[in-house]
Write a protein that binds this DNA or RNA. Structure first.
Length: 302
DNA sequence: AACAGCACCAACCGCTATATT
DNA sequence: GAATATAGCGGTTGGTGCTGT
């Protein structure tokens, strides 16, 4: 039995939405909400697929949608989060208020990616004899350097997110710092942070999670570590508890194939890092992206 | 003025994850 | 647990407007 179509194909309008359709959809949702996107078009009297209605609402009609050019801060946030999360536009969009995943994706593909690539190629031209987009491992261990840079980017982004959480919630609730830290910790961003650091053996463990969780922690094998100076390396990494899992690094993408074990002890230093981290000079590479990152963009686009 | 090439962005398509029966 | 329905996500496409020749 195949998957049922999301809507009847006959008599369904496609293409650009008219202002009249927008008005009908917006009025209906404002009045009734959107219980089921599948049935919504019929109920609202629209000759549209439910999927199309959902997209139109989410990307255009929804309240608090911010339109217009992206600010530098928004762009930096997107760049940082993309470095951490890859093409997970919905996750990125959730940290950029007022912007939709579609908008961010478009902006990335049409502007940011090109800017980063251009920046990389300029950089390559300047330092062709030292390191380049095509370099793999150099004597001064640029791979470690890139690791540090990415770690800094992650921490900076997480610090920003944690501060946002604090600002958002401080006036209305009385949660503790550790609550916010936990909230961040169990977020998507925190998850990638844990997994990545778990691989590297860095002490970075949940304050509460004392037992292995076989569900959430191990569910997302899509966490990507953009270590583009390493190519086609496969290695076993042993975790502190004697459990091991295989980390495969291939063409700049590392993925965890199994990571069912949780993390053991509280890390006040990790909390401190998140709350106190200041980017400083080390964050300059975000303005002029690293060769390795731009290289990953190159390879991803091929 | 006419055309081609390009950039941008809204919308679609196909797939996966999750919920429900 | 299997089958099915639905929501959501990310990649891709197509229309439109701008720019250069």
């Amino acid at each position: 039995m195949g998957r049922a179509p999301c809507c009847d194909k006959d008599g369904v309008r496609k293409g650009a939405w008219t202002p009249e359709e927008d008005q009908v959809l917006a009025e209906y949702i404002n009045k009734n909400g959107y219980g089921s996107w599948r049935t919504l078009p019929k109920l609202a009297g629209l000759l549209r697929c439910g999927k199309s209605c959902r997209l139109r609402w989410i990307n255009y009609l929804r309240p608090n949608i911010k339109r217009g050019p992206f600010s530098t801060e928004e762009e930096n946030t997107i760049i940082q989060l993309h470095g951490m999360l890859g093409n997970r536009w919905a996750a990125i969009a959730s940290q950029v208020p007022g912007r939709t995943d579609n908008e961010i994706k478009n902006h990335w593909n049409t502007y940011l990616k090109k800017r980063l690539l251009h920046s990389c190629h300029s950089s390559v031209a300047r330092q062709a004899s030292t390191s380049s987009c095509l370099s793999i491992v150099k004597p001064e261990s640029p791979s470690n350097h890139h690791m540090v840079q990415w770690e800094s980017a992650r921490l900076e982004a997480e610090a920003r997110l944690s501060m946002e959480l604090l600002l958002i919630n401080s006036s209305s609730t009385r949660k503790t710092y550790s609550d916010y830290f936990l909230q961040l910790w169990y977020s998507e961003v925190g998850e990638s942070f844990r997994m990545i650091n778990g691989k590297g053996g860095v002490a970075c463990e949940s304050p509460i999670l004392q037992t292995c969780s076989s569900t959430k922690l191990g569910s997302d094998s899509d966490v990507r570590l953009q270590v583009n100076t390493i190519s086609a390396v496969s290695t076993d990494v042993t975790q502190g508890q004697g459990k091991s899992f295989k980390v495969k690094v291939e063409d700049g993408i590392a993925s965890s194939e199994s990571s069912s074990c949780g993390f053991l002890d509280t890390s006040d230093s990790a909390l401190k890092l998140l709350l106190d981290f200041h980017g400083g000079d080390e964050m300059e590479f975000l303005q002029a992206p690293t060769d390795s990152y731009a290289n990953s963009l190159d390879s991803n686009s091929n």
